Structure formats: C-alpha cells, structure tokens
Computed example of a mutant assay.
Amino acid sequence: MLDTTPLLDAVDHFAAALRAAPQSRLQRGAAGEGLALARELARRAQRIETPEREPRTMPDAGVFVVADQVQVAGRDLAEALRTGPAAEEDAVADLVTLIRTAERRAFP
C-alpha cells in the first residue's frame, strides 16, 4: 500500500502555517496560494476518483477557511492515492514538492 504520510505531513504543516498567519498576511497573498493549492489537490483527487467526469472547482470560501480547504483537499487526495489505481512513490514526492513550493510562495 502506498505510504502517503509525507503528503499528509506537508499538508498539515502548510495548513498550520495558514491558521497561524495574521489576517493581513493571508490577505497579502498567503490565502491565495493556499486556495490555488487546495484547488489543485482537489482536482487531482477528482481525476483519480472519477476520471470520466470534469473536476469541480473548489470555491473561494474566504481567507479564514483556506487552511481547512488545504487540509481537506490534501487528505482527500491521499485517500484517493491509497485506494485508487496503483500510484508511484514518486507521485507522493512530487506532491510534497508542490505543497512545499506553494508554502514558500505564501510565506517567503
């Protein structure tokens, strides 16, 4: 079974940083980075779970919700990777890189 622990750890770390950020920091771009990441993670999970259907776009629910959106989308993707078609360990490593890159853009 695919180990998604590194993916979950990266998601949790970024979500915690978003939760700890002041409103001004979230409004200056951190929330936008988080939302973009959450949307991408959700899109990838949907592609695995229902490849025949066009993915829905995660809505913008506001700067104070984006940490939860990142965490939910990341956990959904981890579950899709674990239960879906065989995924490579490289896929998890690539996702961790994607998350860390978004976090560095959000919190330079």
Rank of each mutant, 00 (worst) to 15 (best):
R105P: 04
P59A: 08
E88L: 12
F14L: 15
A17N: 04
V11I: 11
L37E: 02
D9L: 13
L26Y: 01
E103C: 07
A17D: 09
E88Y: 07
R43Y: 12
R39L: 07
A10P: 00
A31P: 04
P6Q: 03
R75C: 06
R47D: 07
A16D: 06
D60T: 02
A30S: 14
T5M: 10
R44A: 05
M58R: 10
A106C: 13
P55Y: 02
I48D: 04
V65T: 14
T83M: 09
T83Y: 02
G74H: 00
E89M: 08
D90C: 02
G32W: 08
P85D: 05
E79K: 15
Q27V: 09
R53F: 14
G29I: 09
D3V: 04
D76K: 12
A67Y: 00
F107G: 05
A93W: 02
D3P: 09
E89I: 09
L98F: 03
E40S: 12
R104G: 10
G74T: 01
A102H: 03
A17T: 08
A78I: 01
A16E: 11
Q23D: 07
A87L: 06
R28V: 02
L2K: 02
R105Q: 11
L81I: 15
L35N: 00
A10G: 05
Q46T: 05
S24I: 11
T5D: 13
A87D: 02
E54C: 10
A78T: 04
L41N: 01
A78S: 04
I99L: 10
A15K: 00
D9I: 14
G84V: 12
A87F: 05
D68G: 15
D94H: 08
Q46L: 03
A31T: 05
T97H: 09
P51L: 12
D3S: 10
L2V: 14
L37K: 02
V66I: 13
A86D: 10
D60H: 08
A93M: 02
R39A: 07
A102W: 01
D76R: 15
A16S: 13
L81P: 03
P6W: 05
T101S: 15
R104D: 14
Q23A: 12
R105I: 03
T5A: 15
A42H: 14
A36V: 06
V92A: 01
A36E: 07
